[in-house]
Amino acid sequence: MGDGGVKAILFDLDNTLIDTAGASRAAILEVTELLKTRFDDEHVVGDICERFNMKLLQESFQPSRDLTIDQVRIGHWDQAIREAGGKGPDSAVAARCYWTWKNTRLTLLSIPEPFRNLLLDLRGTLKLLLLTNGEVQTQREKIQAVGCEGLFDAIVVGGDHAEEKPALSIFHHCFQVLGVGPKDCVMVGDSLGTDILGGINAGVRATVWVNGTGTASPDVSIKPDYTVPSVLDLPSVLACLNHSVDRSGMRSI
């Protein structure tokens, strides 16, 4: 699979190799059951969870000696409870919500066995690098939970660097770590705005958008070279690259 100039593959983590979205939904359901033992109004319970999810999406965490990511997210739950009108909120309830959510999510995360076998097979001929955006502790905990350290030649967490995907600097760092050039690499990920755009701007050989839901592209201005429903379709992409270097159009496998 390493023929045709491809020497390395950069993989995204969340919702590319692991179902973070699914695990997060299941974790919220666990918290919902917990909150029902505290609050009688199911609408309030639902509102609390929706508010937490929104705060998570809007989160902008800056590392601090005084505040950890765990404390920040306990604060999200505390604020969500107060804003939703939950009576008698206290830090203990917010902390229980957070640890239930976090531990449930980490427990449910895994790299499916077929994905793991594919990575092992690819690593026999190619260099593999895991490139994931996010806060360092959070992403490292996911990586440890799914036990994927041995599947990659290198792991790069965006939170460890001044810039994350789609910034050129972090892609250049990855190329340097692997000892390859942009045209030696394929970028694989589920996010058009970070994985695919970053790969295009960095000049990689090809970008592969993992569109597991089959939905239409939310941004037609970002055009991946290949669109696949799963990383398991990657061998077909590599086979195409071995026979063609034409990047003139978006292709689906």
Rank of each mutant, 00 (worst) to 15 (best):
L57F: 04
L57N: 14
L57A: 13
E59F: 05
S60P: 00
Q62T: 14
Q62H: 08
Q62G: 05
P63Y: 04
P63T: 14
S64N: 14
R65D: 14
R65S: 13
R65V: 06
D66M: 10
D66T: 15
D66R: 13
T68W: 08
D70I: 03
D70G: 04
Q71T: 03
V72E: 09
G75A: 11
H76A: 00
H76G: 02
W77A: 01
W77F: 14
W77G: 00
I81N: 00
R82D: 11
R82N: 10
E83F: 07
E83P: 06
A84D: 06
G85N: 10
G85E: 07
P89F: 00
D90R: 09
D90I: 04
A92R: 15
A95K: 15
R96S: 03
R96I: 02
C97W: 01
Y98E: 05
W99V: 08
K102W: 11
K102C: 06
T104C: 13
T104R: 15
T104A: 11
R105I: 07
R105M: 09
L106I: 12
T107Y: 09
T107W: 07
L108F: 12
L108E: 11
I111A: 04
P112L: 03
P112K: 08
E113L: 11
P114G: 13
F115R: 07
F115N: 13
R116P: 01
N117W: 05
N117S: 13
L119G: 05
L120V: 14
L120T: 15
D121T: 14
D121P: 02
L122H: 11
L122Y: 08
L122I: 10
R123M: 07
G124K: 15
G124I: 06
L126E: 02
L126G: 02
L126K: 03
L128M: 10
L129T: 04
T132L: 05
E135F: 03
Q137H: 08
T138M: 07
T138V: 10
T138W: 01
E141H: 12
E141C: 08
I143G: 14
Q144F: 09
E149W: 02
L151R: 00
L151V: 00
D153N: 15
A154L: 09
I155V: 14
I155N: 01
V156S: 00
G158M: 06
G158L: 05
G159D: 03
G159H: 01
D160Q: 13
H161S: 01
A162R: 10
E163L: 06
E164K: 12
K165A: 10
K165W: 02
P166E: 07
P166M: 09
P166Y: 02
P166T: 08
A167T: 09
L168C: 06
